[in-house]
Design a protein around this nucleic acid. Structure first.
Length: 343
DNA sequence: TATTATGATTTCTG
DNA sequence: CAGAAATCATAATA
């Protein structure tokens, strides 16, 4: 306090205070407690300092009184002078802060997961689910998928409501501080730039809260994701009709059981499974068939008969020529599918 | 409950 | 990158 008084007094000559008001610096020191001007400044400062301890009404009244004080303009200009000197050192201390890389990372991930960003409802997933349902075989994958989507939507909702709360709190606080600063700018010089800087500082402080929110949201998504993947890993057998279709194709193309991409697509559609599931199935089937042809003999015959019968339905003559009770009973793998036999 | 069947994943190869 | 082969993990079955 005393120091401040001295400092202000020391700067007196620079500001709008006249000699009469302040006296020259030397005389200040000489008659520290006696001079009327010093008394005034001391009073003002004391009042300023005491303001925070007072009730709002009291403070309001005091504020008004201060604003009307005859010394007020002088004090203001002194403060301007001081500021002029100090602002240089403040400036440049913290210029534009780069966006936090951590936050950026989290943002990107949230965006990628569809938590932030635009709602993508009715998108491909829903269409896929609808298609699966329409396909006759309510594949569980679609159910799990919708489950996943529901959970994701839940996370999304929580995230957004929390973010909103956060933003509200942040802007409320910012507003409060800005009002305070604007209010104060009547008694002390505060440039818009400074207010801006203060806002930036507040936002920086708040961003750690935001980061926490984003981080925990990311974690939740990760957990959900891994659970979903685990669930997907849980094997569910294809339905009977699907395996029938696949086996039919396999055994009727034993010599070259490699369906083309188009064929795979068609099989997938027929079976209500995905193309990659068809690929998996053929991969598994080929290797398992090859490993133990004997074990599949019966099945092979079954499907050979089946296709033969189908053929018979189309052409009775063909059935005569083609389907003896056991089509290939002798040299079994009829059109010689061998591991290396592929084209 | 042990075993087998089977869909999915991983690793390797040409 | 498609496919072979090995492997995993679970469903189905004995």
């Amino acid at each position: 306090m005393d120091d401040q008084t001295r400092m202000l007094a020391g700067m007196g000559g620079l500001g709008g205070l006249s000699q009469a008001d302040v006296g020259d610096p030397d005389s200040v020191r000489k008659q520290q407690s006696l001079g009327q001007p010093q008394q005034d400044i001391g009073d003002i400062l004391q009042q300023i300092m005491a303001i925070t301890d007072e009730s709002l009404d009291e403070a309001q009244a005091r504020k008004h009184a201060l604003n009307c004080h005859r010394m007020k303009p002088a004090l203001f200009s002194v403060l301007c002078e001081i500021k002029e000197k100090t602002v240089l050192s403040i400036r440049g201390v913290q210029e534009e802060d780069p966006p936090d890389p951590q936050i950026m990372r989290l943002d990107n991930m949230l965006l990628a997961e569809g938590v932030s960003g635009p709602e993508k409802g009715g998108g491909s997933a829903a269409a896929a689910a609808a298609a699966a349902a329409a396909g006759g075989s309510p594949n569980d994958s679609s159910i799990e998928h919708s489950d996943y989507r529901a959970k994701l939507a839940q996370i999304r909702q929580i995230y957004h409501s929390e973010l909103e709360k956060y933003e509200q709190a942040c802007s409320e606080f910012t507003n409060h501080v800005m009002n305070l600063l604007r209010e104060q700018s009547r008694t002390r010089p505060i440039s818009p730039k400074e207010i801006e800087r203060m806002v930036a500082i507040i936002h920086r402080k708040f961003s750690s809260i935001q980061m926490q929110l984003k981080q925990s949201t990311c974690e939740a998504v990760m957990i959900l994701r891994s659970r979903f993947l685990d669930a997907r890993r849980k094997r569910r057998n294809f339905n009977k009709q699907a395996t029938e279709v696949l086996n039919e194709y396999f055994y009727s193309h034993l010599s070259n059981p490699y369906p083309s991409e188009e064929a795979k697509e068609e099989l997938a559609k027929k079976c209500g499974i995905t193309v990659s599931q068809v690929s998996n199935w053929f991969g598994n089937k080929r290797i398992r068939y090859k490993k133990n042809i004997g074990k599949f003999q019966e099945e092979a015959n079954l499907y050979a008969v089946k296709t033969a019968v189908d053929a018979a339905n189309v052409s009775a003559q063909a059935s005569q020529a083609n389907s003896p009770a056991t089509p290939n009973s002798g040299g079994y793998p009829a059109p010689c599918y061998t591991p290396d036999g592929r084209l």
